[in-house]
Amino acid sequence: MDLATAIVTVEMVEASQMGMKALGAGLAVGLTGIGAGVAEMGIGAAAVGATAENKDIFGLALLLTVIPETIVIFGLVVSLLILF
């Protein structure tokens, strides 16, 4: 056999597949994290502004601010499904 020809074994294919899966899982969490961050920027700014004027709505403002976190949870679920 020619020395220059690489041999692709089953182990190597499996390792590559695992790598791709990990990459996909990472992207699922990472991108949804960025999305949630962008969404929370506006809500958070408005929540801080509203709370500065009226302290009674702190609880509601906090709740509204964390609602975009659900996107990250979806991302996390997807990544777990990919990995396991």
């Binding site: 920027m41 408005a46 502004g49 509203a50 004027e53």
Partner: peptide, 25 residues
């Protein structure tokens, strides 16, 4: 809180404060 610059977040912050203040009139 005297200096707020850059991005859209400061606009959102100030405009919300104004809206709350307006509702208290």
């Amino acid at each position: 809180m005297s200096v707020v610059t850059g991005g859209t977040a400061p606009y959102v912050y100030v405009c919300t404060r104004m809206r709350v203040r307006k509702s208290k009139l």
